[in-house]
């Protein structure tokens, strides 16, 4: 047996502490950022006021925006609606007071001849969606641990979940840094990455499991490390090819998919990068550390048993 890729000198294990450090620091700083700066929440997650400006003629977003700015208001979001874009819907996060609303209404009555419709929105829907998504991910995580424990072994399940949360958190942190507006499709993107992360990690673990079977003796850290590195090298081509193909799709959406998909596809690309990184440098290494500790414990126990004095 002489696998070509076994000759490579790639070592995914030696620098594991640096990878743990990098991810640890990044996520730690990220959590601080998330709790101070937070995410730039869109109207889906904030309460506020929406004003539907009606015109008899088609309008452009710029026109409506300028009208708002001429009386000193800046909508947080503006979309056009109606068959011929004769309606502009402006959203104000945080809402407007009664007086402000009246001012806006009378201004647009003068300009377009129609009274704008004003409604208040509550973030209940977006919040509930996010809450449900988080609950779903947590329950799914428990289910995955259970499945992986049955099919593989408990430690694989734990490591897979570590990678999963690493990837999901990674996206949140990046969005907190760039302060891109978060909307409902963003949640779908995070969920997609959760799905992808599991998939990616399991494929690597499957190879580790298979290679562990071939090993005659797995006694200490170095034995396990060798198996893990071999498995990572063997699945490297697959890992890279798969992420490349998905990045092709997500990247095309980012570049060509239009404004509506920009947040979504950006989150996907970030998540894919994080997912691949964690599959190569985090997930298997976490398992390695856990597994070698377990081995050590078992060995200690054996030694203790052997040392029992005979009567």
């Amino acid at each position: 047996m002489n696998f070509d890729h076994e000759e490579t000198k790639l070592d995914f294990i030696k620098h594991r502490k640096k990878f743990f450090m990098f991810s640890g620091i990044f996520l730690f700083v990220g959590i601080i950022l998330l709790s101070t700066l937070g995410l730039n929440l869109g109207i889906d997650f904030e309460s506020g006021t929406t004003i539907d400006v009606l015109s008899d003629e088609p309008v452009t977003a710029n026109e409506v925006m300028e009208e708002f700015e001429s009386i000193g208001y800046t909508p947080d979001d503006l979309v056009l609606a109606g068959d011929n874009n004769e309606t502009g819907r402006a959203s104000f996060i945080g809402g407007l007071t009664q007086d402000q609303t009246l001012e806006v209404q009378s201004h647009f009555e003068d300009v377009y001849g129609n009274t704008p419709a004003v409604s208040t929105v509550t973030p209940i829907v977006g919040e509930e969606l996010a809450k449900n998504a988080i609950i779903s991910v947590l329950i799914a995580a428990a289910g995955i641990i259970l499945y992986v424990t049955i099919r593989f072994e408990f430690l694989y399940g734990i490591s897979a979940i570590v990678a999963l949360f690493h990837d999901a958190l990674f996206i949140l942190v990046v969005f907190s840094i760039v302060q891109m507006e978060v909307n409902i499709p963003f949640i779908a993107a995070v969920l997609t990455i959760v799905g992808y992360s599991i998939n990616d990690t399991i494929v690597t673990f499957d190879r580790i499991r298979e290679n562990m079977k071939f090993e005659k003796k797995v006694k200490d850290f170095d034995d396990v490390a060798r198996v893990v590195n071999k498995s990572l090298v063997q699945t490297l081509a697959r890992s890279i090819n798969t992420v490349l193909t998905v990045v092709f799709a997500a990247g095309a959406l980012f570049v060509l998919g239009g404004e509506g998909l920009r947040t979504f596809s950006f989150a996907l690309v970030i998540g894919l990068v994080a997912g691949t990184y964690s599959s190569l440098f985090i997930a298997a290494q976490v398992w390695l550390v856990l597994k070698s500790r377990q081995l050590k414990k078992v060995r200690h126990r054996k030694v203790e048993i052997e040392e029992q004095p005979e009567v």
């Binding site: 979309v79 609606a81 109606g82 874009n85 309606t87 409604s119 929105v121 509550t122 509506g260």
Partner: peptide, 11 residues
């Protein structure tokens, strides 16, 4: 009404 959303046909 606690939430409403409208998307223009052309959009």
């Amino acid at each position: 009404e606690i939430y409403s959303n409208s998307v223009g046909a052309s959009l």
